[in-house]
Design a protein around this nucleic acid. Structure first.
Lengths: 153, 153
DNA sequence: GTCCTTGCAAATCGTTTGCACTTAA
DNA sequence: TTAAGTGCAAACGATTTGCAAGGAC
């Protein structure tokens, strides 16, 4: 998407040092449309940096999280990360259970929800899980339903 | 609520044995309106059964989960359990960040969501987090906002 | 040269397992 | 009696920490 360099610049400005690993990590997120587990990240990076250790991955993920470059989502099978949406306006997501790609949902359910006057809303979560068009084309019948039961609620 | 005995009967029917601990565990959930972490459960039970071990708590929680007596929810600060809603009809929840009590939301956002034709919806999640009326009354100003940022998204 | 970043090893946290002992039915 | 439940200790996977060496600026 080309935001890699912009993010790297941001890091620089914060006084953080730009190592090759960090640049690669940012690029990885920049080029990935879906969610990545720390393990995914580790496995990808390890091919390029054989000496890589897991704690460095965790440290850098946390750094990107603190910088609000990536966002963290809890799935039933673990924590996952993806680049933060550039889209400014408040929105929600449809998440593909197969490739974990996300599609924006502009509709916000809070408009239609009847909240009791004495309940002070702090935040809300609305997520739709399913199989995206691309994945349905290449799908092996039956496999999707199985996957589905082990991911997000 | 008085469902304790009914659940115990169910367990009996499945061939499970009714130990004092299990009865107490069921009663604990029956009497709790909010969510409980395994640690919460352990700490409560340990007062009555000093020799209690954590693995027994986990084993019995899983048993109640398998029996569909309790449901499990992932929060940012860990897994939590509560008695399953008796309400049959599909619904969602408003969850108090302070006492973790839940209020039902009958409105389902899926009716208003525009799903692309090629996206096959498998499941969805809609949760509202905030401070309930009871907690707002006894609230120390400022503390609620802090709590909020560390729980569900 | 300074201070941040890394890898390593070890610690920690939440959860699960194997095993021998106990107990509900 | 006997299969299921328990506590204990140990294993486990995910994540975090302290520390000394390496690297960005």
């Amino acid at each position: 998407m080309g935001t890699t360099e912009e993010i790297v610049r941001q890091m620089s400005q914060k006084g953080l040092r730009i190592t090759e690993q960090r640049r690669t990590l940012v690029k990885l997120f920049d080029e990935t449309s879906g969610y990545l587990t720390p393990k995914d990240v580790y496995e990808h990076m390890q091919q390029l940096y054989p000496g890589l250790s897991f704690d460095t991955v965790y440290r850098n993920l946390r750094m990107l999280l603190d910088m609000e470059v990536v966002e963290q989502v809890l799935f039933e099978d673990g924590v996952k990360f993806k680049l933060r949406c550039e889209e400014e306006h408040h929105h929600h997501h449809m998440i593909c259970l197969q490739c974990q790609k996300t599609l924006p949902i502009r509709f916000c359910p809070m408009t239609g929800t009847d909240v009791p006057g004495d309940f002070q809303v702090v935040k809300h979560k609305f997520e739709v899980f399913g199989i995206c068009g691309d994945c349905r084309e290449t799908e092996v019948p039956g496999s999707a339903a199985n996957e589905a039961s082990s991911a997000g609620g």
